[in-house]
Design a protein around this nucleic acid. Structure first.
Lengths: 115, 115
DNA sequence: CCTTTGTGCAACTAAGTAGTTGCAGATGAT
DNA sequence: ATCATCTGCAACTACTTAGTTGCACAAAGG
């Protein structure tokens, strides 16, 4: 939906990194991202079927991921299908490479390649 | 579950990524890492002087960062000096690039360059 | 010795988060 | 129209985390 292509690296505001890293700090959420990437977009109900968690719990995780900009949803009929928009990951890599670049110049070289 | 990649990327246990991303999710902690990298290792007391936070609060953040493997401390006399060990950042970048690589082949190319 | 400075630990509060249950509103099928 | 199914929201519990204060212990220096 939002096609706002955020400039990846240093121009990101801190709060975005908070929610982004925060979203990635949970193993369930990382698994959700991986699964949505490998098996394609699905609904929260389908995702909940293969976990011990409730649909509502999964939905909350999806909303956290979406707030971090990692997901978006599309409604078809009564189903709501969530899919990954991995662009914000570039911001995370941007900060990491920027920071690590202060330490290691090789990584700094890599950062320039990434942008 | 995840594809067992060769290097320290996917071979890292999930809990490590939890604490790692969790440590990076806080702006104060990211600032601490940046500051320790740019201005070199220091003590918690010194770090606390330039923030509105207490020394104890700073110390807790340092311990969180150290638990994530991003810091280590060295004792000289009665001072304890904290410094950055940015290697774990590679694990974070590893997961991100592995994951984003499932979606974007360009990033996957970059991943191979990084290892 | 005594004083000063830096560190470490414990208790406590306030706020956020993961998870649940329960129910109400849409939508599709019969 | 009716029934089954999927979604969305609210309330509630349990746990974790960020921050504080207060105090006790270790090391330098007079």
């Amino acid at each position: 939906m939002t096609r706002t292509s955020t400039r990846a690296t240093s121009t990101t505001d801190p709060g975005a990194l908070d929610t982004l890293f925060g979203a990635l700090a949970d193993p369930t959420r990382r698994q959700l991202v991986e699964r949505l990437l490998t098996k394609g977009p699905t609904t929260a109900t389908v995702l909940a079927e293969t976990t011990p968690l409730t649909r509502q719990a999964i939905l909350k995780h999806l909303q956290v991921l979406e707030a971090a900009g990692l997901l978006d949803h599309e409604r078809t009929g009564r189903e709501v299908r969530y899919g990954v928009t991995p662009q914000p990951l570039a911001a995370a890599v941007g900060w990491i490479l920027d920071t690590a670049g202060l330490w290691d110049k090789r990584i700094d070289r890599l950062r320039r390649l990434a942008t």
